[in-house]
Design a protein around this nucleic acid. Sequence first.
DNA 1: AGAGATTTGTCCGTATGTATT
DNA 2: GAATACATACGGACAAATCTC
Lengths: 133, 133
Amino acid sequence: MIDPNADRAVFRQLADLLRDRILSGKLAPGEKLPSELRLTQEHGLSRTTVRQAMAILRSEGLVVVDRPRGTKVRTTEPTETVTLRKGDTASTRMPSPAERRDLDLAEGVPVVVITRADGSTELYPGDRTRVGR
Amino acid sequence: MIDPNADRAVFRQLADLLRDRILSGKLAPGEKLPSELRLTQEHGLSRTTVRQAMAILRSEGLVVVDRPRGTKVRTTEPTETVTLRKGDTASTRMPSPAERRDLDLAEGVPVVVITRADGSTELYPGDRTRVGR
DNA sequence: AGAGATTTGTCCGTATGTATT
DNA sequence: GAATACATACGGACAAATCTC
């Protein structure tokens, strides 16, 4: 359970608890998390604290908000493979808001940056891309 | 400036403003951002709103917190190249808190997951890794 | 040693808006 | 219209770490 006297912040403890449920499969992809109101009641917390926990899970890419139906466990997308040719390299980083919109990325999903041998670059959605050779 | 009546939320406008200063180089890597208190005063906002803006920049990997000295523009790290052999693939995602600690990652920095031809996987810090062939 | 200032972190409360069911 | 659920924004209070005098 959640211990207000523990070293770890309460909102982090709540995020840990929900993350465990997601990673263990108790909360399956597509399934709705308890609403913020329910979480405040079940754990005796303010809505601010609950929202901080949810923000962590969003930033980790574990959940997506389907407003105003609720917050759901993110479903895994089918991936396409991008092939690295000789001289190409790949890197990753978080997208800007504009890039997020262009690539239709959820919060907490990185972008893959392919740098071709000629110096040109291409951006790919991190949740739908694998890099191969 | 920041317009409370605009379509875009105030904290997003503030994040946009600071992001512009970072990406344009007006705020150089390693340099300190204005403190939260200063930002509340300069823009007439509550600390909650300022903190929401800062959270965006952290989640984008643009700034790191050096507490209690302040929040600074993230410096770029030298990268090592990981070589992809035949049958290997690479993907990316946000790390769990445990992985963040193990790899010493700042907020808003993804991990690179290398899946070798034999099925084994390796994790690398997204800000210090390039994938080549 | 100590006191005070600074800065971010954590937590609470309230209010209102917007979109969907 | 009512109920639900998340988003935005304000306010206050105290803690912890660091720096300055």
